[in-house]
């Protein structure tokens, strides 16, 4: 079977990146992709550490994920998806301590959002954790090599973790075309070559780009737009 993404070869995958790069959409998609498959562990959990963004958080998809058998951990106020209190539940430690649980961590944006990872730092050993940095070359702050690397370096500086993997998530929502993704691919390749990282996958929004259009890219990860109601893309 063709792989969508380079193997997630460690138990904990931390998804970090610039604010608005698409971390949450990737985390939810990865969880839905892995759910019900043999992903190497007995359990699967998404941990939402985004305490900056007031809207569009992965815990909003709690029902979708839980129905698929994915544990969802995040705010201390389970039902209160809209609470803006930066409070995280103590039960977040459960999946992190559970050696039989695969964990996908949706970190907050930028260094200021990723700093929340630090309180769980003891779980992030090199043996069991891999951090992936999501890059969208259409975001103004990460549109070129210098900007994208600056963001990654800032996240690494505050967390002490290295983003060994890069995820190209360059898109313009439903206006994305293959050229958009290829532009991002080139930027991510440059980042990988010059800073010693590995391109983990190239994402494409499934509703608007066809897989064949990205022939030649090694790992093509289709994304469903779980976080985006369709009416947000109604033309005005």
């Amino acid at each position: 079977m063709e792989r969508y993404i380079r193997p997630l070869d460690r138990r904990i995958t931390v998804i970090c990146g610039h604010y608005g790069s698409g971390k949450t959409e990737l985390a939810v998609n990865l969880a839905m992709m892995l759910a019900g498959t043999d992903h190497g562990y007995e359990r699967l959990a998404v941990v939402d550490l985004d305490i900056i963004n007031p809207y569009f958080r992965s815990r909003e998809q709690r029902k979708l994920l839980e129905d698929a058998g994915v544990g969802v951990y995040g705010s201390a106020y389970r039902g209160e998806i809209t609470a803006e209190l930066p409070a995280l539940g103590a039960d977040i430690r459960a999946p992190l301590e559970d050696a039989d649980c695969r964990v996908l961590i949706d970190a907050g944006g930028n260094d200021s959002g990723a700093i929340v990872l630090n309180q769980f730092g003891k779980y992030f050993t090199p043996e069991n954790t891999r951090m992936l940095a999501v890059v969208n070359a259409n975001r103004p702050d990460t549109r070129d090599f210098a900007g994208a690397v600056e963001q990654i370096a800032a996240i690494e500086a505050v967390t002490g973790l290295k983003a060994e993997g890069i995820v190209n998530n360059t898109h313009l929502l439903r206006e994305t075309d293959a050229a958009t993704i290829l532009k991002g691919h080139r930027l991510c390749e440059e980042i990988c070559e010059k800073t010693g990282r590995v391109l983990w996958c190239d994402c494409y929004p499934e509703p608007v780009v066809r897989r064949e259009e990205l022939e030649g890219l090694p790992y093509r990860m289709p994304l469903k737009l779980y976080m985006r109601p369709t009416w947000l893309d109604v033309k005005i």
Binding site: Y19, G20, N136, N138, R139, P140, R143, H171, L172, L173, E175
Partner: peptide, 10 residues
């Protein structure tokens, strides 16, 4: 050219 921005930033 087109960029992807959050409403508040834009």
């Amino acid at each position: 050219e087109k960029v992807l921005m959050k409403g508040n930033e834009a």
